[in-house]
Design a protein around this nucleic acid. Structure first.
Ligand SMILES: [Mg+2]
Length: 231
DNA sequence: GCGACAG
DNA sequence: ATCTTGTCGC
């Protein structure tokens, strides 16, 4: 771990305290053009089996999209699943996995929403603020808001609007598939976020960083661990 | 009060 | 998220 990882706050919170914390941190979120020279991209996801969480953080080469490093960590999940409070359930084990990474990627794509959230502070934004690193939210379904008229062609977009504001984009990443919902996490604006997602899609609905992180965090991988060691 | 509701 | 086989469409 060649980077600092200060938690900002405790994770031992009650749901009402978690909501208050989101309200106090939402002001730190930034949305700005992201044009840095990108060397590597990270994918983040969590799988759960019998109450045990397994986080996978994959760092891939930006050009080849080949995995450079995979960090996995497991931890008992304590916080319940409450829509709008996902980060309090998954972040602890994610941070544990991040500590095992030899270096941080230039930007993270997180499975879940960024500001397409009731309080504009979903898990992607939360991770970005904790690390003060660029993050993007890439969710498989809507938490808040709605969109319309999404064309069938790959690359088609439709604004996701919640309470009168554009909080994300429904993006068709694969023909015949439901779109993914892209939103600002931290330090990456929506335009840059959508571009980055499209450039990391390789024939599947999920962009490679998320697809790989999901594979390494999934139940299949967890079972696989029982027989074979994953480095 | 009722329904929606990331993973 | 997870429980789970086949089935339909691109
Ligand atoms: Mg997930």
């Amino acid at each position: 771990m060649k980077f600092s990882l200060d938690c900002l706050h405790s994770w031992n919170l009650e749901p009402n305290q978690a909501v208050a914390l989101q309200q106090s941190l939402r002001g730190r979120v930034r949305a700005e053009p992201f044009w840095d020279d990108v060397a590597s991209i990270g994918g983040v996801d969590v799988g759960i089996l019998n109450g045990m969480g397994r986080a996978a953080v994959v760092r891939l080469d930006y050009v080849s999209l080949q995995p450079l490093e995979v960090a996995v960590a497991t931890e008992q999940i304590s916080f319940p699943y409450i829509p709008g409070l996902l980060s309090f359930r998954e972040m602890p084990v994610i941070l544990k996995a991040l500590e095992k990474l030899s270096g941080l990627p230039d930007v993270f794509i997180v499975d879940g929403h960024g500001i397409a959230h009731p309080r504009r502070f979903g898990i992607a934004s939360h991770l970005g603020v904790i690390l003060d690193k660029p993050t993007i939210g890439c969710a498989k379904s809507i938490l808040v808001g709605s969109y319309q008229y999404l064309a069938e062609e790959v690359g088609s977009q439709a604004d996701l609007v919640a309470e009168g504001e554009v909080v994300g984009v429904a993006l068709r990443t694969r023909r015949g598939c439901k779109p993914v919902i892209v939103s600002v996490g931290h330090r990456v604006d929506l335009l840059s976020a959508v571009r980055l997602i499209m450039t990391t899609v390789r024939g599947y609905r999920l962009p490679e960083p998320c697809r790989l992180a999901h594979r390494f965090a999934s139940r299949v991988s967890q079972h696989y661990d029982k027989d074979i060691k994953i480095k």
